[in-house]
Design a protein around this nucleic acid. Structure first.
Lengths: 200, 200
DNA sequence: ACTCATAACTGAGTACGGTCAGACTTTATT
DNA sequence: AATAAAGTCTGACCGTACTCAGTTATGAGT
């Protein structure tokens, strides 16, 4: 074993390498063709692994999508949080958080909708799913933080309202079937709803 | 042709009879075993039609579930509306509308969640799907009507808020994976959220 | 009655997500 | 080095939702 090698055994390194190949392959194919147009066989072939091996790394095709997309959403959220810092006003700042997430979701409409579907209806015990839920929780916490800027909103209400904002976001994105519906159009729709639930 | 026969031709009557057999068969099997445990073949057999014929009456298995459940939801809504008439207070009346719907959704948890999934992510152009969306629209209108009792809420806001209530209901039901979560528990959860969005 | 166009039906066939018994690889033990 | 134990991989296989080319039933036209 060369001195430069990781402290991990060969086995662990192999697994890591395979996982990365899977992510790369799935990521590319999903982006190019959309989840529904890609077969798990294609992904396995491109990642140079057996068809069955794929399912050792993600229990279902849906989990695979979560695995691939979670990273994108996490960075989108980070961008949103940064933007919200610089935005005054509760409504404006809330939308600033949300905007990059919606935008990320709209890069490939079908994939975005499938991602949402998987999050709500997939098996929450699966690891990649849990990861996705963590991002949602973070988003809600961030929104709750923003809402607390308003002195008329208690901390408990902020948490509840953040949950509601999350629902609004989710369903507004999921309902926007038409791929020509742009990010800003959706944001405006969301603005209308959030505007109606905030104290006047 | 006997005098007593309908004005419809034999063709139309046959179709009607088949549709009814399909609804009866699917309804029974779904209720007994749950959507996921029933195969379309079983349904076709029970309805005494060919496997392919089933898909002339419902484009997908999901559509079939919508076909079967829509009627239940429609009556649940009617019950809710009746109950809301007799219930004073905006929050109470809103929950009165919702209660039977939630309850209906919880009769068989898996079927209920699949129904929700199909409504948001299914093909809205399919007829049974359109029917389901109509029920949702009616629910929102009914809720908007209740909200308008509050003089602090404009008609436009009532419509928007009704939409939000709909989202809350949807996601709260869909997230309640545990079959032991009862109707009232979910209603309480929803009450908390609606309470937070109504003007104080 | 007969013909023909059209609507409705059928079930063998297809594609694909997911499984599993067995092969292979790595690590631990002596 | 040899062997054992445990972990990882594989692809043939399976179940099932859905399709489609071919068949049959219906009713309008003559």
């Amino acid at each position: 074993m060369p001195l430069a090698a990781q402290s991990l055994g060969r086995r662990e390194r192999n697994k890591q390498a395979k996982l990365e190949r899977i992510i790369a392959a799935a990521s590319e194919l999903f982006a190019e063709q959309g989840v529904d147009e890609v077969t798990t066989q294609q992904i396995a072939d491109k990642a140079d692994i057996g068809a069955g091996t794929l399912f050792l790394y993600a229990k279902t095709k849906g989990e695979l999508l979560l695995l691939v997309q979670n990273a994108h959403y996490a960075t989108a959220l980070a961008n949103g949080q940064a933007a919200a810092e610089k935005t005054p006003g509760v409504l404006g700042a809330t939308l600033a958080i949300i905007r990059p997430v919606v935008n990320c979701n709209r890069v490939h409409v079908d994939n975005g909708r499938t991602y949402l579907r998987e999050m709500v209806f997939g098996d929450p015990r699966e690891p990649h799913h849990a990861e996705a839920l963590k991002i949602v929780a973070q988003t809600e916490q961030a929104v709750a933080g923003i809402l607390s800027r308003d002195e008329a909103i208690t901390d408990a209400d902020a948490a509840t309202l953040a949950r509601v904002v999350s629902s609004i976001m989710f369903l507004t994105m999921a309902s926007a079937v038409n791929p020509h519906t742009g990010t800003e159009e959706i944001i405006e729709n969301i603005r209308g709803q959030i505007g109606a639930i905030l104290p006047r």
